[in-house]
């Protein structure tokens, strides 16, 4: 065994070298020196990487997370309070015409973050308005095949646990969309009684509680679901409760 091979293998894993490496080191003092040096360096490296002060309250904070999550109380996170809030606050300031009404909240109404999220969702309807109009007008009667629907769902890290129910409800549109930055969502449109019903599944931070969104044309509802949110948006007069009942228990996250 030459020195380069020996060094390569020792450096790749100094603490768990094979028998043939040990034998080579014993037979060749130069290789033994390399092994000894590598192990000494590894001790320093391990010490350095492990010698990180663990925040004293971290364990208790982590142990408390389930209770806080299950009680629907917002989990204190600086990530949510900085990046998300800043983004959504900015979005909210740009979109003033969208009306948001709380259906059920624990604290009197949607937060600024949720309000802005609702605004983004309504805005997205107009991004896809040609397709919505085509379905509502009955000019698009095509049906997306189930594997294609599943692929779109998979890209958003989600899936249906039961696809049978979709067979009676043609999926006219299925597309991965980015409604808010960096969050891949699955956007489906199914044929409703009054036109296209948009079904959006997005793996972003769950909203605190269900709330409705609306504008002059559309009504919608944002439903928190464990890892993310399910959003249903249809034309006025569409019975979204019917679709909520169908989709809510059939969507699951893949991570």
């Amino acid at each position: 065994m030459d020195e380069l091979e020996f060094r390569t293998r020792v450096y790749a894993n100094p603490t768990d070298v094979d028998k043939d490496l040990l034998e080579a080191a014993q037979a060749e003092p130069r290789l033994q020196t390399i092994l000894d040096d590598a192990r000494a360096f590894e001790a320093d490296l391990q010490h350095q990487l492990q010698n990180i002060e663990i925040p004293a309250a971290l364990a208790n904070t982590l142990l408390d997370l389930p209770e806080r999550a299950e009680s629907s109380a917002p989990v204190a996170s600086k990530l949510a309070s900085t990046s998300f809030f800043q983004y959504y606050a900015m979005a909210a300031s740009l979109v003033l015409a969208v009306g948001i009404a709380a259906v059920l909240t624990l604290n009197g109404g949607p937060s600024a973050t949720e309000t802005a999220f609702g605004a983004d969702l309504i805005m997205h309807m107009y991004h896809e308005i040609n397709e919505i109009d085509a379905i509502t007008a009955g000019t698009d009667t095509s049906t997306i095949a189930m594997p294609a629907v599943a692929q779109v769902m998979a890209e958003a890290e989600t899936q249906f646990n039961d696809e049978e129910f979709l067979r009676a409800m043609p999926v006219r549109f299925a597309k991965p969309c980015v409604i808010i930055p960096t969050y891949q969502s699955a956007h489906l449109m199914v044929q409703g009684s009054h036109g296209a019903v948009n079904v959006i599944v997005i793996n972003n931070s769950p909203v605190n509680s269900e709330y409705s969104i609306q504008d002059d044309r559309f009504d919608g509802v944002v439903v928190p679901m464990n890892e993310g949110n399910l959003i249903l948006i249809g034309e006025k007069d569409e019975n979204l409760d019917e679709y909520k009942a169908l989709f809510e228990d059939r969507v699951e996250w893949t991570i």
Partner: peptide, 22 residues
């Protein structure tokens, strides 16, 4: 970053809790 690490660890364990059945 220590503060960022704390946040990320919380997010990670929260997601782990929610997905533990999987």
């Amino acid at each position: 970053s220590k503060p960022l690490a704390e946040d990320l660890v919380q997010e990670t364990f929260l997601r782990a809790w929610r997905s533990l059945e999987s």
